[in-house]
């Protein structure tokens, strides 16, 4: 429900600090995603099963059945979060994965228009996003601002 009326009602609302932080965190998480989209055809049966690759040139030195990919999935199943937690007890003292992360920059932050990406001088009052011109503000109000909830 875009348009002038939508805008007028939106204008009375202001996103609180917590919601702004949540939105910012979601944006950063999206940037760090490895797979943006879910497998769109996960339920399709593969006509070709993931192929069994021929053993390399020579005959195997020991008689042994190769274990399946599924076996290793179950054998080594741990999420990233579990691994980070585990590391805190395995390598409790820095330097470790957590401590190696660089701190914030000493240089001032720069601000860019959320619409066109050029340097911006203004902040949207309802949501805190940046914009550079009346035109970009209009686009921002019509498309994002309070339109999508984080």
């Amino acid at each position: 429900m875009a348009g002038v009326r939508g805008r007028e009602t939106d204008r009375r609302k202001v996103l609180d600090d917590a919601a702004r932080k949540r939105r910012a965190r979601k944006a950063v998480e999206a940037l760090e995603q490895d797979n943006f989209h879910e497998d769109p055809h996960a339920d399709l049966v593969m006509s070709k099963k993931v192929p069994k690759f021929a053993e390399s040139n020579e005959k195997p030195t020991r008689k042994k059945k190769s274990k399946s990919a599924e076996y290793y999935k179950l054998r080594f199943r741990k999420t990233f979060a579990q691994l980070v937690e585990e590391d805190a007890s395995f390598r409790p003292e820095p330097p470790n994965y957590m401590s190696a992360q660089v701190p914030p920059s000493k240089f001032p932050e720069r601000h860019f228009c959320a619409v066109c990406g050029f340097p911006s001088n203004y902040t949207c009052i309802p949501c805190g996003a940046r914009y550079c011109s009346v035109r970009c503000l209009g686009t921002h109000l019509d498309t994002r601002c309070l339109k999508w909830t984080a």
Binding site: D34, F53, A54, S56, S68, A69, Y72, K73, R77, F80
Partner: peptide, 21 residues
């Protein structure tokens, strides 16, 4: 995922491919 080897079934499949003819 996030720079670490997490999905072992996928890695095993890709390695089997890499080490094959």
């Amino acid at each position: 995922q996030r720079g670490f080897l997490i999905n072992w079934d996928t890695q095993k499949t890709v390695w089997d491919y890499m080490f094959s003819k």
